[in-house]
Design a binder for these strands. Sequence first.
DNA 1: TCACATATATGTCTTATACATATAGTGTCC
DNA 2: GGACACTATATGTATAAGACATATATGTGA
Lengths: 141, 141
Amino acid sequence: MHESDPGSISRPRRRCCQAADGTQRQLGRGRGALLEPALLIALARSEAHGYDLVRAIEEMTGGDVVPDTGGLYRLLRRLEIEGVVTSSWQESGSGPQRREYRLTDEGRALLAHWMEHLAVRRDALDRLIRAGTDQSRGWRR
Amino acid sequence: MHESDPGSISRPRRRCCQAADGTQRQLGRGRGALLEPALLIALARSEAHGYDLVRAIEEMTGGDVVPDTGGLYRLLRRLEIEGVVTSSWQESGSGPQRREYRLTDEGRALLAHWMEHLAVRRDALDRLIRAGTDQSRGWRR
DNA sequence: TCACATATATGTCTTATACATATAGTGTCC
DNA sequence: GGACACTATATGTATAAGACATATATGTGA
């Protein structure tokens, strides 16, 4: 019907990233779909427990991806249900109990799929960045 | 409490991408947070109406980002409310009515912010891909 | 008349993400 | 021994993006 005017204009405007405390910990409002592949890559390197994975992922991405621990554990649970990882409680000596996760064959297959995927996404991202950079250099139209 | 075993194991397993029809149109289950920056970049190049933007974005990303039209129009509306774009109906001759969008100064500022952001994300993605590739080459631990 | 392309728009369900919070063990510093 | 910090796993919940279906209107060509 082609109607409707947008409401009465401008607001504070959130940034495209930014956590609640004002720090920039997330990638594009946190959404870059990097958590699952990062987790799989970390686990392909070595079996690990959840808390380790948080730091492994942070390190692998140069500090740019700092997973939410809640989300990470939920993701691990989901991946286990889907047969991508298996887990077992460690009967270690000291400290709180820890669950150790390892990739299954299916998990390795999924990782391989993700790798192709990330390459495609990087290409798309590169093209976008180039388009945007050319733009700001000023040769319009 | 540390309890709970995940349910009775494996399921069909969705891919990390794939649309409902089996085609691969999305990036990582569609979530790459590329739509907003792609739209801003396209609009920085030239004012345009929504339908054009779909194709411009597709072209800019080498066909890897095919925006959902519904989401795109909703995004445009949101951006207008936030003062990032302005729009006006075109009184063109033939065809259905079209709304033309252009970036505001605030929009250009947001784009600049996005550009820094995309660069960070690309670096994170590169590190991830490198970590995963090294991994599959087999030098474990 | 019917299909198709252009063009804008809404309805709605699912999922990820973000953030807060709960819990428990272990060490340390005063 | 109490306060605190760190390790470790987990749940509750609100929001927002995304995916898909569908509605609408105009115009073209078979």
